[in-house]
């Protein structure tokens, strides 16, 4: 893990280079700030506007965490139900894939009509984008449990519940964590989209206000913080994985 962080200087350097090119291009071509502000302006706005911005940031953090927890719980629960009751899996799984084809942008206003402007439609939006990666990953994990281990457990007299809790669930943890990592980044995006629906505060609200008043620098500040937030959430999952699926890592290191 520390090794990976040390390797991080390469992408950081590329990013820095990109910013320098951006800054110079904007200055040399004399592009107006409402079209494309230089990175230094964005940084200045991020610092100066912090007093106003941190409130929005806070509510987005709260919303994405809540949505992520609910969304991934729904995802995991769906996977468990589909796995344990094969009939349900056969009849529901194709529909789950369809659920991912409904464009959120179209669905969101409908949700507002049905559920109003409260927390409910927002959580539904985040759950919709969050649950799918976890369900798919967990289902694959459950299914890939090695037959020899299953056979041993059955011969030794494990019942369905023991088979699941003692074998299938722990075996799928690495897969579930892959799903969680994807969902974690989606949840921030989902939260921002859901805030467009109408909220008092949040990065989504801040973003809409900024873009409609041509404060492009603020739009970029919003983007910057969305990225940071996604990254932090991702790191959090990575950390949890580090402690919970130690065995997989040790096995890999040995090979």
């Amino acid at each position: 893990m520390i090794n990976n962080l040390l390797k991080g200087w390469r992408p950081a350097l590329v990013l820095l280079l990109l910013f320098i090119i951006w800054e110079m291009a904007v200055k040399l071509a004399d592009i107006p700030a409402w079209l494309l502000p230089p990175p230094t302006d964005i940084l200045k706005e991020a610092i100066e506007g912090w007093g106003n911005f941190h409130e929005h940031l806070q509510s987005t953090i709260k919303l994405s965490l809540l949505g992520f927890v609910i969304g991934s719980s729904v995802g995991l629960l769906t996977a468990i139900i589909l796995h344990l009751i094969p009939m349900v899996r056969e009849s529901i799984y194709p529909l789950l894939i369809l659920s991912q084809n409904v464009p959120i942008i179209v669905l969101a206003p409908l949700l507002v009509i049905w559920f109003g402007f409260g927390l409910m439609p927002k959580i539904i939006v985040i759950t919709l984008v969050c649950f799918f990666p976890i369900t798919v990953a967990a289902l694959d994990g459950f299914r890939q449990t090695p037959n020899e281990l299953k056979h041993y457990m059955m011969m030794a007299g494990a019942n369905r519940r023991q088979l699941f809790w003692k074998l299938e669930l722990p075996f799928s943890l690495p897969a579930i964590f892959s799903g969680l990592k994807i969902s974690a980044t989606y949840s921030v995006m989902g939260a921002v989209i859901s805030e467009w629906l109408g909220a008092k505060s949040g990065i989504g609200v801040y973003m809409t206000l900024a873009s409609s008043s041509f404060r492009t620098d603020r739009v970029f500040v919003a983007i910057l913080f969305i990225m940071i937030l996604s990254l932090l959430l991702f790191l959090l999952i990575l950390l949890a994985e580090h402690f919970l699926v130690r065995w997989k890592r040790m096995e890999a290191e040995r090979k």
Binding site: E148, L149, M155, A156, G157, L167, P170, K248, E251
Partner: peptide
Amino acid sequence: GSISYMPQTPSLLPW
């Protein structure tokens, strides 16, 4: 579950 069993492969749980 009425017998105890040792399979061909060790089948130990890696975690």
